[in-house]
């Protein structure tokens, strides 16, 4: 039922992409997302697409598994495309009744669709190949300099990792409660909007109760192990860059440079 959500889940396997330092993957994904909005020509998107394809191949995550994650944002994608398609002013291509599709609208909506799809695939790929623990470590390390400004970096990354860790747990829980209520004749799919919202109550109340209970248990377990925040905390597996990671940074920089060149040259 909810198994299609791949965002925020880790795919266990051994690949070059999995072994890469999480900081490289975090910074790489961030810069990739930024560069997606810098690039605005067909060759640029081809370069971005090719780069992404290589990353996916290196991750050894089945392609179908990544694409499944796209299904969940299909609605968002469709809305974005439709709005851009009909509401961008410019040279009209087709027009019927009150709607006009313009040339600018068409190109812009295709661009937005490609950007969003690449964006989701890239971030899905990052979470699929990086365990939540690694991701937090990376975040903490990358945001490290902010500690000087009294930003609670460790606490923020801890909260993020807990949130990430809880996504699959809450999904499973939702699935279970949904089934339990369906066994009692609940219907989540039919009826009008108001009925559908009403039907959520038997799902949400138990879900919230269980989420609070879990949060409470976790807090207790952390305290029982003397957790007291980031002050003076050392790591069992400190992050160390290896040769391959430096090389990956090199490739990433080359890719970013290529994209910027394409944009500036206006190819």
């Amino acid at each position: 039922m909810l198994k299609d959500v791949t965002l925020g889940q880790y795919y266990q396997t051994d690949s070059w992409m999995h072994r890469l330092d999480p900081r490289v993957k975090l910074l790489g994904t961030l810069s990739y997302i930024i560069i997606l909005f810098v690039v605005n020509s067909v060759p640029g998107y081809l370069v971005c697409g090719a780069f992404l394809l290589v990353c996916v191949l290196l991750s050894r995550v089945p392609f179908g598994y990544i694409l499944r994650g796209l299904k969940t944002i299909m609605v968002l994608l469709l809305i974005t495309v439709l709005f851009n398609l009909f509401l961008t002013p410019g040279e009209p291509l087709v027009s019927f009744w009150k709607f006009t599709i313009t040339k600018e609208g068409l190109t812009f909506s295709i661009k937005m669709a490609v950007r969003l799809i690449f964006l989701i695939i890239a971030s899905t790929l990052m979470t699929l190949t990086t365990s939540p623990n690694q991701l937090t470590d990376a975040l903490e390390s990358v945001l490290g300099p902010l500690k000087k400004l009294h930003v609670p970096v460790h606490e923020i990354s801890m909260m993020m990792s807990i949130a990430l860790r809880f996504i699959p747990i809450l999904m499973e829980e939702t699935d279970k409660i949904m089934k339990a209520q369906m066994a009692r004749g609940a219907d989540f799919d039919s009826g009008n909007l108001i009925n559908k919202i009403k039907a959520m109550v038997p799902l949400l109340v138990p879900l919230f109760i269980s989420a609070f209970r879990r949060a409470n248990d976790l807090a207790m377990a952390m305290e029982a192990r003397c957790y007291h925040g980031g002050e003076g905390r050392t790591k069992m597996k400190p992050l160390v860059y290896r040769k391959g990671d430096v090389g990956a940074y090199g490739v990433l920089c080359a890719f970013l440079a290529a994209c910027i060149v394409i944009r500036v040259m206006g190819v």
């Binding site: 279970k176 409660i177 089934k179 339990a180 209520q181 369906m182 066994a183 009692r184 004749g185 038997p202 138990p206 109760i209 269980s210």
Partner: peptide, 15 residues
């Protein structure tokens, strides 16, 4: 589902 009733594990979580 009315004819085949299923009580889940830890059914109290559905209250």
């Amino acid at each position: 589902r009315a004819n085949v009733g299923l009580v889940f594990q830890y059914p109290e979580n559905q209250l």
